[in-house]
Design a protein around this nucleic acid. Structure first.
Ligand code: NAD
Ligand code: NAD
Lengths: 216, 216
DNA sequence: TTTAATTTGTTAATTTTTAAACAAAACCTT
DNA sequence: AAGGTTTTGTTTAAAAATTAACAAATTAAA
C-alpha cells in the first residue's frame, strides 16, 4: 500500500516546479497547501516527516526542496517502463509526451496481436512472449498493464516473474502479486461510479434541505 | 472527498457480479475479502454501514447484496457522461466498450480542433463552445476532462457552469471547483512515480537486510 | 434434541491520518 | 535594540479508518 504522504510529496514536487518556472525562489507552506488542496499544517507535517526543512518567517527554498524530493523519489536517473497491451489505452500512453519531463521512459511495448508489432514507431513493440527477455535486458522494474481483463493476471505473472516490482494496472481485475510487488489500479469506471454516487448524494441532501425549509 | 468505504462497495459489486456469473447464489465475507484484498471484518463493517445484511452461518445472498448496492449506487438508470478533449486519452475512452455494462454512457464529446469534430462516429463530437448547451440539453452531470493542462481549469469552469457535478480529470493540474462538485484525478505519472518510490524502497530495505546478515 | 461449528454484526481497541496549538526562530519596523 | 509579526516545526488532540474481539444466530452433526 502506498502511503498518502508520498503521494502528496509527488504533488508538491509538481507544484514546486511550477512556481520555480514562474520565477519564485521561496515558497510558504500556505501556498503549497492552497495549491494542492490540503492544510498548511499537513504540508509542514509531510516535510517534517521527510526531513525537508525551511526557514522560520522565510518559508522554504524551492530549489532545496526539489533537490531533496528528487533524491527521495530517485529522480536522479531515468526510470525505464514497459507496457503490455497496445490497444486503445496502450496507444494513448505511447503517444504521451509527458513522461520524459518526469524522468520516465517507455522503453518497450508488448502485444500478442501481430498487427500491433513494430507499427507504433515511437517505441519498439515486441511479441508478448519476448517480454521476459526484454524486461531482463532493459532491467526495467516498472510495468503498465493495458491488456484485456481475461489475460491480465497471466501477463502480470509474466511481468513479476521477469523482475517487475511495480505495476500500473488498467484492467478491471484485482491482481494477485507477491508482497514485494506493488500494484496501482486505474479504474475509470470505478472512479466514474464514485463520482455518480457523490453527485446523487449531494442532490439528495439538497432536496432534503429544501423539504426541511418547506415544513417550517 | 470520496470515502474509502464507497470505493470498496463499488469493488464488491464487480466481484459479486463475477461470482454470480460463475453460478454462485451466496457468498461469505471471507471470499469477498480475499478477492479484493481486504480483511473479512472490513467487508462486514462496510456492509453493516450501508445496512447490507446477511445470514449468520449462511453468508450473504448475492442477489440481495446486488439489489441493495445497485440502489445505493443509483444503478437503476443509465448515467450520461460527457467528454472534453478527443486527443489520445479521449479517443481511447470513446472506443471503450465497458461503460454500458456498468450503466454509463458517453453521450457527447467536445473539442476545439475542427478536425476532431464528428470524425469519431461512436459518439457525436461538438465544438467546445457548444458544451454548455449540450450538457444542459442532455442533463448530463458527470464529465471527463481530457484536454491539455493549459486549458483544463477553463474547460472545467465551463462544465461546472453548465451543471456538471462530478469531474474525472486526466490533466495534471489541481482543479478548483465549488464544494458541491467532486473531482477525481487520474494521474498516470504520479502513480508511476509512486510505484518507482515503492520499488526502490523495497530494494533499499532488502540491501540493508543483506548487509545486516553479512555483519553477523 | 443437544452439541459443535461456523459466520455474521456490533462493540471495543488500535492504528493511521489529519487538524490544532503553540513555542521558537527569523525578520521587519520603529 | 526592542517589540511586534510572521512562519516554521514539534507536540498534542481529534478524527477517520482499520483491526480485533466476541456474543448471537444459524446450520449441521451427533
Ligand atoms: N479504453 C479505455 O478507455 C478503458 C477504460 C477503462 C478500462 N480499460 C481497461 O484497460 C485495458 C485495456 O483496454 P483497451 O481499451 O486498450 O483494450 P484493447 O482491446 O483496445 O487493447 C488490448 C490490447 O491487448 C492486446 N492483448 C491481448 N491479449 C494479450 C496478451 N496475452 N498479451 C499481450 N497483449 C495482449 C490486444 O492485442 C490489444 O492490443 C482493458 O483491461 C480494459 O478493460 C480501458
Ligand atoms: N495520453 C496520455 O497517455 C496521458 C497520460 C497522462 C496524462 N495525460 C493528460 O491527459 C490530458 C489529455 O492528454 P492527451 O494525450 O489525450 O492530449 P492530446 O493533446 O492528445 O489531446 C487533447 C485534446 O484536447 C483538445 N483541446 C485543446 N484545447 C481544448 C479546449 N479549449 N477545449 C476542448 N478541447 C481542447 C485538443 O484539440 C486535443 O484533441 C492532458 O492534460 C495530458 O497531460 C495524458
Amino acid at each position: 500500500m502506498i502511503k498518502k504522504n508520498i503521494q502528496r510529496i509527488i504533488q508538491y514536487r509538481m507544484c514546486l516546479l511550477k512556481f520555480q518556472n514562474l520565477g519564485f525562489e521561496r515558497i510558504f507552506s500556505y501556498t503549497l497547501a492552497q495549491e494542492i488542496g490540503v492544510s498548511p499544517e499537513q504540508v509542514r507535517k509531510d516535510f517534517s516527516q521527510f526531513n525537508l526543512r525551511g526557514n522560520k518567517k522565510a518559508g522554504y527554498k524551492i530549489q532545496d526542496l526539489l533537490d531533496k524530493i528528487n533524491e527521495l523519489l530517485h529522480k536522479e536517473d531515468i526510470h525505464k517502463i514497459i507496457l503490455a497491451g497496445l490497444g486503445n489505452i496502450g496507444k494513448a500512453l505511447v503517444q504521451y509526451k509527458g513522461f520524459i519531463n518526469r524522468n520516465m521512459q517507455l522503453v518497450a511495448g508488448f502485444d500478442i496481436d501481430p498487427a500491433k508489432l513494430k507499427k507504433n514507431c515511437r517505441i519498439p513493440v515486441f511479441h508478448i512472449d519476448d517480454m521476459p527477455k526484454v524486461i531482463r535486458e532493459e532491467k526495467a522494474r516498472i510495468g503498465i498493464l493495458a491488456v484485456p481483463e481475461q489475460v491480465a493476471q497471466e501477463v502480470c505473472n509474466q511481468m513479476v516473474e521477469a523482475g517487475i516490482k511495480g505495476i500500473l494496472n488498467f484492467a478491471p481485475v484485482m491482481l494477485k502479486t507477491p508482497e514485494d510487488v506493488t500494484v496501482q489500479n486505474i479504474s475509470v469506471c470505478n472512479e466514474l461510479e464514485a463520482l455518480i454516487y457523490m453527485s446523487e448524494k449531494t442532490t439528495d441532501k439538497k432536496e432534503k434541505e429544501k423539504k426541511g425549509k418547506k415544513r417550517k
